[in-house]
Design a protein around this nucleic acid. Structure first.
Length: 797
RNA sequence: GCUCGGGUGGUGGAAUGGUAGACACGAGGGACUUAAAAUCCCUUGCUCCAUAUAGAGCGUGCGGGUUCAAGUCCCGCCCCGAGCACCA
């Protein structure tokens, strides 16, 4: 017997696939198309993670089955290579990010190839390649031209000792991750993208796509649309009015105080002299606290400003406070507080002894958002809350002190980074003409060489140091101008990469209309839950924008989105170098084979749930593959008819594997393969037709072994495009069925009958069972239940 | 605090409201072997009872409810995980 030599066998088939271009997608095929997309990896220095393997192998199985079902399949891969770790590595080692990236990509590529994934490597993209980011910059220019890219002062995290801006991720407990120094917020001009203009469509169009419900829910909550009213409050002794956003204008009569965000620009101006010191101290304290710390604060804090607002409905004076539970970034940065009917307001009012006035009655719990009737509310009294909201909005609009308003949690996308390793923003600043976009013919605007990758002391990107790059001629007037030195975030390149795969070598357009029309939208997109509210939303936004420019054929980029769970270490924690619990896929491939690794990761648990690594279970999968190997080695394949029982299991298996792959239930698909192999004839003789079918349904999971076995059955070509086996429903049905008998809901017996036996006969037979009789004796049957092929039930008194 | 998940044997997990624990891992026993590994076969939710093939009870985080029947549906909790921008 030939041993199962996974190394030789996997190398052989990987070479074969590569030489034959087996998985190259055809741009001009008669077949229906299928586009499977997996989030392209960031090529980190650490190499491929077993978590990548989980989703790539699973989606590979789907893609392979689709090919066998007659689809022209596109399953591409590339590199999302701009990013902080590479840049920080460059700062530390002086190794150019281009060099480090190249090296990391080479490693990833070798690792992915060792897994035998059926990628079309001819379409590989790399976001840091100027031929790619030319088009990222081009799309930015289109956004700019449509007014969706603009500059705005925004607070950034500023490390006082490193003198650079930090990403949120680099701020740990209010301190700089690299030097441990203090971090404060600083205002800086930033490029912004107006994603909020698409907020409504980003919610509404979710109805047209097939995403996991939890993904839709998370996006909807993130966008956070809420309807309400914006109402002006006069401040005693001040000219300026302060706008408030509320979703509950019906409760206006219950507003007994007023709170502003500490950062609100009018706070300093209106606070009384007596309170000034206290207010300033509080503002200062809040400025040093991160938003995370603000959230984690268990008890409410706040300071009275000494000012009073006038409640517009009853002209009552209500005190104005500042408190960190009100955020400047949402609504207007000021709220009216109704402590009787809002939990947070209530807690605040209790702590600071502020008055509480109930205005709704008939609620089970005073903080319920619906139901009840108005009281203590003048012209609203007796109305339902729903009616009162409408009435109050009409009233404020008539009084011209406010208006209906829709607010979103979603904020515009901060698109600037003061970093080196990103796409340069193609804008110049001319003394005469102001902000001028680069002509498209000047793209790509390439990253210049820099002597050092650290941001400058002023917080500008290292590009600012390269004078010969920064100083340029204005494209409009030819006069002196300076280039924008901010770069784009790494979300830019990933917002459209799936479009590039359709036509990745095009140098006239980001992709041809023909290719886009044929391949898009993506039929199936898989990625981590952590990208739901950033990457996934950003790319939907860009796509909608491109659609509005008539540059892509559909308004949504992805038809279906699923998501995989994390692969944790054997100890249940995240895999991390510092814990020393990282599993390296290279070692597993070397020791046990790619097929074993792929199948193990698909079998380990439900695809969308987190799961811990288990080396024992990995060995179990290796044993299973060896059992298949042995069966094919030791069995003679001949023209015989399989037994009815085995033929039934085979057909059930084809059905189960097909259905489960369609539903991404990889674990149960593999259990069914195990059930099938447990049922295989032991007589060393088996029908060759059956053996072929086993090969075919194994192929998506363990492609190398399946190809080899296929060859052993007398084929000299790959099975990648062989027809996926069909189920013969005739063979699924068993002749006898087992009925369970329940008496008063408890299982008491079971018995077998021929499948076709009718209801009355089955019930009669059930009553005759010894065990059943025991329970029926002396009682009266008040109800009989019959479920065909499954259950007979009696209710006995 | 908010949002989204999850809680089933020793472990990972199966289960259109219809026989809970499929399939694996682990463990125990046996066969083969000078021996070990590998392989093959058997047992394996818990408790009670028993010479026993049998039998009885309990069991899907907790407490209620709907139903002939609930892991699954409804109400109220507890715990664990992930994410977050206290979203008015």
């Amino acid at each position: 017997m030939k041993p199962y030599d996974h190394k030789a066998l996997e190398a052989k088939w990987q070479k074969h696939w590569e030489e034959q271009n087996t998985f190259q997608a055809d741009d001009a095929s008669e077949k229906p198309k299928w586009y499977t997309l997996v989030e392209f990896p960031y090529p980190s220095g650490a190499g491929l993670h077993v978590g990548h393997v989980r989703s790539y192998a699973a989606l590979d199985a789907v893609s392979r089955k689709k090919r066998m079902e007659g689809f022209n399949v596109l399953y591409p891969i590339g590199w999302d290579a701009f990013g902080l770790p590479t840049e920080n590595y460059a700062i530390k080692t002086k190794i150019h990010p281009v060099v480090a990236t190249e090296k990391n990509i080479a490693t990833y590529k070798r690792q992915l190839k060792s897994l035998g994934l059926s990628y079309d490597w001819s379409r590989e993209v790399n976001t840091t390649d100027p031929r790619y980011y030319k088009w990222t910059q081009w799309i930015f220019l289109q956004l700019y031209k449509k007014g969706l890219a603009y500059k705005k002062k925004m607070p950034i995290n500023w490390c006082l000792s490193c003198k650079i801006g930090l990403a949120n991720e680099e701020v740990v407990n209010g301190q700089c991750e690299r030097c441990g120094g203090d971090v404060e917020k600083r205002e800086k001009e930033q490029w912004m993208l107006a994603i909020t203009k698409y907020a409504d469509r980003l919610i509404k169009d979710l109805d047209t796509v097939d995403y996991l419900e939890k993904i839709k829910a998370q996006q909807i909550n993130w966008i956070g649309r809420s309807e309400g009213a914006e109402i002006d409050f006069e401040i005693e002794g001040q000219k300026e009015k302060i706008k408030v956003f509320t979703t509950r204008p019906d409760t206006l009569f219950g507003a007994t105080y007023f709170v502003m965000a500490p950062e609100h620009p009018l706070v300093q101006k209106m606070c009384s002299t007596a309170q000034k010191k206290e207010v300033e101290a509080y503002i200062k304290k809040c400025a040093t606290e991160s938003e995370l710390a603000r959230q984690e604060a268990k008890t409410k804090t706040g300071v009275f400003t000494g000012a009073y607002a006038i409640n517009p409905v009853n002209k009552e004076k209500i005190p104005v406070w500042i408190a960190d539970y009100v955020m400047m970034g949402y609504g207007t940065g000021a709220i009216m507080c109704v402590p009787a009917h809002d939990e947070r307001d209530h807690e605040f009012a209790e702590k600071f002894k502020l008055p509480i006035v109930e205005v709704i009655e008939g609620l089970k719990n005073p903080f319920e958002k619906t139901g009840g009737k108005m009281k203590n509310s003048d012209f609203l009294n007796g109305l339902t809350t729903e009616k009162a909201i409408v009435t109050m909005i009409d009233w404020v609009e008539k009084q011209k002190i406010g208006e209906r308003k829709i607010n979103y949690k979603l904020r515009d996308w901060i698109f600037s980074r003061q970093r080196y390793w990103g796409e340069p923003i193609p804008i110049v600043h001319c003394d005469k003409c102001g902000e001028v976009p680069l002509p498209e013919s000047d793209l790509p605007l390439e990253l210049p060489e820099v002597p050092t990758y650290e941001p400058t002391d002023t917080g500008e990107s290292p590009l600012a140091r390269i004078e010969e790059w920064v100083n340029c001629a204005c494209p409009t007037c030819g006069g002196k101008a300076k280039r924008e030195t901010d770069t784009m975030p790494n979300w830019a390149g990933s917002s459209w990469y799936f479009l590039r795969y359709t036509d990745s070598h095009n140098d006239k357009a980001f992709a041809s209309q023909k290719a886009l029309k044929y391949w898009t939208p993506v039929d199936l997109y898989n990625g981590g839950m952590e990208h739901t509210t950033l990457h996934l939303l950003y790319s939907r936004f860009w796509h909608k924008f491109l659609y509005d420019c008539k540059l892509v054929p559909t308004s949504e980029p992805y038809k279906k989105r699923i998501s995989h769970g994390m692969v944790l270490a054997e100890d249940g924690r995240k895999m991390s170098k510092s814990f020393g619990n990282v599993i390296n896929p290279d070692e597993i491939v070397k020791e046990h084979g790619a097929d074993t690794l792929r199948m193990y990761e698909m079998f380990m648990g439900p695809f969308d749930q987190a799961i811990a690594w288990d080396s024992g279970a990995l060995m179990g999968m290796r044993r299973f593959l060896e059992r298949i190997w042995k069966f094919f080695q030791e069995t003679k394949f001949v023209e015989v008819c399989p037994t009815d029982d085995f033929r039934r299991v085979l057909n059930q298996s084809i059905k189960k594997v097909t259905d489960d792959l369609n539903q991404f239930k990889f674990n149960t698909a593999i259990s069914q393969l195990m059930i099938l192999m447990n049922a295989v004839p032991k007589e060393k003789e088996c029908s060759i037709h059956v053996a072929k079918k086993i090969c075919l349904i194994l192929a998506p999971f363990a492609p190398h072994m399946a190809e080899e076995l296929w060859g052993m059955l007398g084929h000299d070509t790959s099975l990648a495009y062989e027809k996926w086996p069909e189920v013969n429903p005739k063979f699924l049905i068993e002749d006898t069925v087992t009925y369970a008998v329940q008496i008063n809901g408890k299982l008491r017996a079971d018995f077998q009958t021929p499948r076709e036996m009718g209801k009355d006969e089955v019930i009669a037979l059930a009553k005759e069972q010894d065990k059943v009789r025991k329970y029926l004796d002396g009682g009266k049957i008040v109800k009989e239940i019959f479920v065909l092929g499954k259950i007979v039930g009696f209710v006995v008194k």
